[in-house]
Nucleic acid binder design. Structure first.
Lengths: 227, 227
DNA sequence: TTTTTGCTGATTGTTGACAATCCTACAAAT
DNA sequence: ATTTGTAGGATTGTCAACAATCAGCAAAAA
């Protein structure tokens, strides 16, 4: 029987912000969707005040877009946004890699990443794409968190939600899960003992070319239309 | 007589957030200070609602810290925070450098940075430290903005406010303005035509060692107490 | 027929009042 | 002397009502 734990108490605004963040992440509120205050407040069983406060947080975070007197909308991700998200994501992961290699627990990080990669591979092989996708995100999040920088992790959390929104744009333009599994394991091994330049090159290959992915997505959409 | 320009209209919450951000930046609300809702709402001439919304934005941004039922405070910057801010700042500026060198307007960026460096040097030489400090921030902000990434710039804006808060901790631990001016001009020249590895090395030298700066600040504070 | 104006309903923006919580000071109990 | 309990004041958290704005539609004017 350990020490008593402080009760977790958060204002409604915090709780709502977290719920909305989740709902955006899972697609319950898809890109471009308007969040109606009256309807949402009723659904959450609260007044509009704390709901508005929560939405202001997410506006500041960049996940929602506010138009005065017209409403608040889930951001839509243009092709330009996709490129920007991938650029910033690469910058953050690269910085994390440098920190891990310079001052981090290389072996521990590599082991954690390998474990996630194996679970992801297993999920994909059994056809559980949703779980596989979540594990893909967990892999990258673990990598960034291993750098031990609160600000880096916080920024990356937002970028990850935006990355999910980007995936709506990239359907059909992404690589096969076999490639991903192989690359995840290779990257984890390199983090254990390779040189920083080689690791960065591997990360760059892993990310692929967002321009190419966008083109593929466009081609796939065009092919779908021509049928 | 040109075309009429659209009126710039923003909700009170946005305007207040911007004002508060400024006040934190300039030290009107110093680190650790509590922002009293009733007092502030009265000072701004508004009700507490939009003020609360504004504060939620800044909480999400990381500049304010909320304790439920106790209030909202300007963040305080621990030594650990100083190191983290400098780490993330370096990561963002490094990413910006890579983007500029790979795809940006190298000559244009170098020219803009040189101009700012000269104005900063002039301000410092005439003893105008406040203006010089502002220009130092403008130099780095211009560098990051030249990468053309909205998300990078937005993240950097927050990190810059936090950097200002860090300066409260580093008084006495910072280098002379002569070094800064020389380095700013050298970095700008390298951005025009040097290789990315050399530019990164120069940026790292320019940032110096935050650990060292913290130690110097501690030593200076100790010397002040021993007197 | 087309364009402009006015009205209505829906939604957001703000306000003030009440509820909830915390902190401090003081009195009572141990 | 120390600990516990209570009350009051200050502040934050939430709610409901009213104000302000926009979009769409119908009617009036050109």
């Amino acid at each position: 029987m350990g020490a008593p734990r402080p009760l977790v108490r958060a204002p409604l605004s915090s709780q709502i912000a977290e719920r909305l963040r989740d709902d955006i992440r899972t697609g319950a509120h898809p890109p471009g969707a308007q969040l109606h205050e009256v309807e949402l407040a009723f659904a959450f069983g609260v007044s509009r005040g704390p709901l508005r406060e929560a939405m202001q947080r997410l506006v500041q975070e960049g996940l929602l877009r506010s138009e005065p007197h017209r409403g608040v909308f889930v951001i839509e991700v243009s092709e330009e946004d996709v490129l920007d998200v991938f650029f910033v994501r690469a910058a953050l992961e690269t910085a994390a890699l440098r920190r891990i290699v310079d001052h981090g627990d290389r072996a521990g990080t590599a082991a954690a990443l390998r474990a996630i990669a194996k679970r992801m591979d297993k999920a994909m092989k059994s056809g559980n794409w949703a779980a596989g996708g979540d594990l893909d995100f967990e892999y990258h999040r673990t990598l960034v968190d291993a750098a031990g920088s609160a600000r880096l992790s916080r920024t990356y959390a937002t970028v990850q939600v935006e990355t999910r929104l980007c995936l709506h744009r990239l359907m059909g333009g992404y690589r096969s899960s076999t490639d991903l599994a192989v690359e995840h394991l290779r990257l984890a091994s390199m983090i254990a003992d390779a040189g920083i330049d080689d690791i960065q090159k591997e990360l760059k290959i892993h990310f692929g070319d967002p321009d190419l992915a966008l083109r593929r997505a466009r081609d796939a959409a065009d092919a779908g239309r021509a049928t």
